[in-house]
């Protein structure tokens, strides 16, 4: 055996080490399971399969938003506009689909067929993403400021269109189809299946594609990535458009499920999406994190919420409990990673 071959074998052996991302992800997944078991001890009737299903089905919207938010965070950018886009796209879809002959302003719309109304609403959502991209990439305004602005802009437009409340009358019969379609003969609805598909695709893109790689590079060191031939600007534009489209789809599906366009829908969802990403181990400075971690971050938060509901806790206690869970989870990650690096 040549020296080089020996060296090569030695290298190969060392290379099977778990990456930091996998380490944190398994940590978060483990924490989610542990939390579920803890809640099962403390809360009567908590330990059952239906409850596990609920944790996912109840949170399809925020998990779907979390995918776009996670990609952007990994690339070193914030997206706080997703909650606003959820409201906007839902309101637009309803408005475009409402018949033109309503009794008052709030019950008359544009009379488009459902599919066209939804496509147009999606374009509306995308245009918010385009505004984000334009200000962040071309004008180099910090993303947290830009998307805080578009968050209010999107919700503001939604409020204008619904005059501060909601539109829920005079809709075509098929408007509620998408949001309420149940799948595979179970009570699981289409949006939940779409979320699951989105997660699989996102994990594949993140782990296995050049696109995923570039996202990490840009977040890890934007200067070096540019000098290494990465078109940072173009990539970030794509990410903002993607995130906005995802938020648009979520908004439209919610509007379809409840057959209403509600200007306050998705309030604070942008923060929930941010919190579950951070809970899932995504670094707020970029360059680190994973979609699957975000998913388990959502499960942690959902477990706390669900247990608190089962115990019929007062809103103040629910809020406090969530805050404590988030704080402990994030501190534990920081600590575990620091220990691992020291070791």
């Amino acid at each position: 055996m040549t020296d080089q071959a020996v060296a090569g074998r030695r290298l190969a052996k060392q290379d099977n080490r778990l990456s930091d991302e996998m380490f944190i992800t398994s940590l978060v997944a483990g924490a989610a399971v542990a939390l579920f078991l803890l809640a099962s001890i403390l809360v009567p009737n908590f330990f059952q399969f239906q409850n596990v299903v609920n944790l996912v089905t109840n949170n399809w919207a925020v998990i779907s938003l979390g995918v776009g938010v996670t990609f952007l965070l990994v690339s070193g950018n914030f997206d706080l506009s997703v909650g606003g886009i959820v409201a906007l796209s839902g309101v637009l879809a309803v408005w475009f689909a409402q018949a033109t002959d309503g009794a008052n302003a709030l019950s008359s719309g544009w009379g488009m067929p459902t599919w066209l109304a939804m496509v147009c609403a999606l374009i509306g959502a995308m245009s918010i993403g385009a505004v984000n991209a334009a200000f962040v990439v071309a004008l180099r305004v910090p993303s947290i400021i830009v998307t805080l602005g578009t968050m209010m802009l999107a919700r503001g437009i939604a409020q204008v269109v619904t005059q501060g409340s909601q539109r829920n009358t005079n809709l075509p019969a098929d408007f509620g189809t998408l949001g309420n379609m149940t799948m595979f003969g179970t009570s699981i609805k289409l949006p939940v299946v779409l979320m699951a598909t989105l997660i699989f695709v996102a994990v594949f893109v993140e782990r296995k594609t050049v696109f995923g790689r570039l996202t990490y590079l840009i977040g890890a060191n934007p200067v070096a990535s540019r000098l290494s031939g990465v078109d940072n600007a173009r990539h970030v534009v794509k990410l903002y458009l993607f995130s906005a489209v995802m938020a648009g789809v979520v908004g439209i599906l919610l509007a379809s499920e409840f057959k209403s366009g509600f200007s306050n829908r998705g309030t604070l969802m942008e923060f929930d999406a941010l919190v579950i990403s951070l809970l899932g181990g995504v670094a707020i400075a970029g360059g680190f994190g994973s979609v699957i971690g975000m998913f388990f971050g959502a499960i942690i938060l959902a477990t706390v919420t669900s247990a608190a509901t089962g115990l019929v806790l007062s809103p103040d206690w629910q809020f406090t409990l969530k805050a404590i869970a988030v704080f402990i989870a994030i501190m534990a990650q920081t600590w575990a990673l620091a220990r691992r690096h020291a070791g």
């Binding site: 990456s19 296995k208 790689r213 060191n221 200067v223 990535s225 290494s228």
Partner: peptide
């Protein structure tokens, strides 16, 4: 600060300038 991704592994640094060479149809060959 300009040449390396210090928080990434050596193997992830090396192909960066020609990353598409390691991909077929956008899928990265680990």
């Amino acid at each position: 600060t300009q040449g390396l991704f210090t928080e990434l592994a050596i193997r992830r640094n090396i192909p960066i300038m020609n990353i598409r060479k390691l991909a077929s149809f956008g899928v990265f060959q680990d």
